[in-house]
Simulated assay, not measured.
Amino acid sequence: MKTKYIFILFVILAIVQLGIPAQMINHRESILKEGKPFKFKTEPIDPSDPFKGKYIYLNYELDNYISEDTDWKRSNTIYVSIVNDSLGFVKASAIHKEVPQNGDFVMAKVNRYNSNAKEVRFIFPFNEFYMKESKAYDAEVAHRDAQIDPLSNKTYALVYIKDGEAVLDNVFINDIPIADFVEQ
């Protein structure tokens, strides 16, 4: 009898351990399938961190917004309303402390508030792009080299957004996925 309960408990535990990661993967996949794509211009990539694995760290050109409101606390979640500019890249149209009722938006964290410039600086949660170990360093170099001449090189991250949640799909240099670009 005791063995039967242990077996049932084991099965339940196994289902939970498989179910939670499956649910997380399914949620991210639904954002990629049903979300709206946005292009975020990137800035030079910082070096990869050997403790987190092979990834490239992305800085975004969109990282601040001017606000007359002075009550912005570091690490607080904010909502950045976004629109596309005339070239198809994302720009902020407003920032909010509460979820906006209409329009496209993405969650971010307040990095700091500059009271002199009345500027809120923020960080997006999709700033790490994981790659194959063999391509990460070459991708970092290619992205940095492309940043030297931003007029002839477009570097951006394609991010899918649904209900404020975002999934980083890929990083592009001149409309070519970065993994393919480094193979050229």
Score class of each variant (00 low, 15 high):
Y60P: 05
Q101S: 13
S48Y: 12
L158Y: 02
A22R: 08
P47L: 11
D169P: 05
V83S: 14
K97A: 03
V141M: 08
N102S: 14
I173A: 04
E140C: 00
S93C: 03
A22N: 13
A14L: 14
L18S: 08
I8F: 13
Y65V: 05
I8Y: 13
P44V: 12
A117R: 15
Y5L: 12
R112C: 01
V80F: 04
L9E: 01
V16S: 09
F105A: 01
L18F: 14
R144H: 14
G53M: 07
P150K: 07
K91V: 06
F129L: 06
I123C: 01
T70C: 00
G103Q: 09
E29D: 13
K41C: 01
E98Q: 14
F7H: 02
A179N: 13
N174M: 05
A108E: 03
K73H: 11
K135Q: 12
A146K: 05
Y55V: 01
E98W: 00
F129T: 08
S93K: 14
A22K: 13
P37E: 08
V120N: 06
P37Y: 10
I123L: 07
A139M: 09
P177M: 04
F181A: 14
N102F: 05
I12F: 14
D175T: 11
D71L: 06
V171D: 05
A108C: 05
I20C: 01
G35F: 10
V16Q: 07
F129I: 06
F38A: 04
M1V: 08
I25L: 12
N26Y: 15
T42Y: 04
F89N: 08
T155F: 05
F7K: 04
W72F: 11
K97M: 02
A108N: 09
K54I: 00
K39Q: 04
L168R: 06
G164D: 03
K36W: 01
E43C: 03
S48N: 14
G19W: 08
I176M: 11
R74I: 10
K33N: 10
A94S: 15
L158T: 09
N59S: 10
I8G: 03
Y79P: 01
I95D: 07
S30R: 15
N116Y: 11
A136P: 06
I12M: 11
G35E: 06
E133S: 15
I173Y: 11
V99I: 15
K132S: 13
Y55H: 15
I8R: 06
P177I: 07
V16I: 15
R28W: 00
